[in-house]
């Protein structure tokens, strides 16, 4: 009997020890990353940034995708809260979809940081908004492609744009228009993407070149636009005769930049946004200082600067090593 009791006490003690360890693990903060969709590399790379930073800070990480649906996004938020997350990093489906999300998270006192797309205008109940400075980039890219076009003997520019119902696309466009107006370039046509695929961009670039054979520059708002434009130019033997610049950056466009097919890349720090947003919510959880609005610049990288240590460091904040070479 005594031996049996000893065994029971021993087993109970072991179980309690295990429970205590589990409880200690559960004490760790958990951050949820809610992506608008994960079929676009950009949001996968933001996810990588959040995950990497969470691991570095010793935070648990969970990930959900809203499949571009505001209602799924709201469901995800509720599920995340039910699962007991301490902080949320969100790439919202749209800015206008954010008010109910913010109200719900405020009720539960959960810090939230935005990545890529910011909250609706007028909203203040968020911890941080880490976005790209699209307007300034629009101006800079507009000026750059205009200068390149002029070097090639023209001033007409065609644009392969993101869907213009997006706030970031509008900012890029307004910035570009301002630069064209200042620099004396003519934006002859804008073609909006539906599917963000290279295939679509090739067809659109071909149509752009057919409708406006006198353009000297192609302004891309997204990575696949430049890849598609280069393919169209290659087919027509126009590489180097029409300049290409784009926002974003990927192993594909970096290679095209090195090859001289793309003249300028404006790097959007997808990974960096994930890192910075996670850092901001962690700061909020631990009572440290947070930065409310953090518009990250999109620096220009060219063939001449791509191998500089500064640009290589920037590239590591654009896409993860698993995506391809820097």
């Amino acid at each position: 009997m005594g031996a049996k009791l000893k065994n029971v006490f021993g087993a109970t003690a072991a179980a309690l020890l295990m429970l205590s360890c589990a409880a200690r693990a559960a004490d760790k903060y958990t951050v949820a990353y809610i992506a608008p969709s994960l079929d676009i590399s950009y949001w996968q790379w933001v996810a990588y940034g959040v995950k990497t930073e969470a691991a570095k800070l010793g935070i648990n990480y969970i990930e959900m995708t809203s499949e571009n649906s505001p209602s799924t996004q709201m469901n995800n938020i509720r599920t995340a809260v039910t699962r007991g997350v301490n902080a949320v990093v969100i790439g919202p489906v749209s800015s206008t979809s954010t008010p109910p999300v913010l109200r719900f998270l405020k009720e539960h006192q959960i810090p939230v940081a935005f990545t890529g797309i910011g909250p609706a205008p007028g909203e203040t109940d968020y911890t941080s908004s880490v976005t790209a400075n699209n307007y300034e980039t629009g101006v800079a890219e507009g000026k750059f492609i205009c200068d390149e076009a002029k070097k090639l003997g023209g001033n007409k520019i065609g644009m392969l744009s993101l869907p213009l119902d997006r706030e970031n696309a509008q900012k890029y466009l307004n910035g570009a228009k301002e630069a064209f107006s200042t620099e004396g370039c003519d934006l002859v046509q804008i073609l909006q993407t539906h599917g963000l695929t290279v295939n679509e961009a090739v067809a659109q670039a071909n149509d752009l070149l057919t409708a406006h054979p006198d353009i000297k520059g192609i302004y891309g708002m997204y990575d696949e636009a430049a890849t598609g434009a280069v393919k169209a130019l290659q087919t027509r033997g126009l590489i180097g005769k029409i300049a290409v610049a784009t926002a974003d950056g990927s192993p594909t466009t970096v290679k095209l930049l090195r090859d001289g097919a793309i003249q300028g890349l404006f790097l959007q720090e997808a990974v960096g946004q994930g890192i910075d947003a996670t850092e901001q919510v962690y700061n909020a959880l631990t009572g440290k200082k947070v930065t409310k609005d953090l518009p990250l610049p999109e620096p220009l990288v060219t063939k001449d600067t791509i191998d500089s240590p500064e640009m290589q460091a920037k590239l590591k904040r654009v896409y993860p090593p698993s995506a391809g070479a820097y």
């Binding site: 079929d39 676009i40 599917g195 290279v198 598609g228």
Partner: peptide, 9 residues
């Protein structure tokens, strides 16, 4: 033709 494969192609 495109020389690039995409998961959403």
């Amino acid at each position: 033709y495109i020389s690039n494969a995409e998961a959403t192609a």
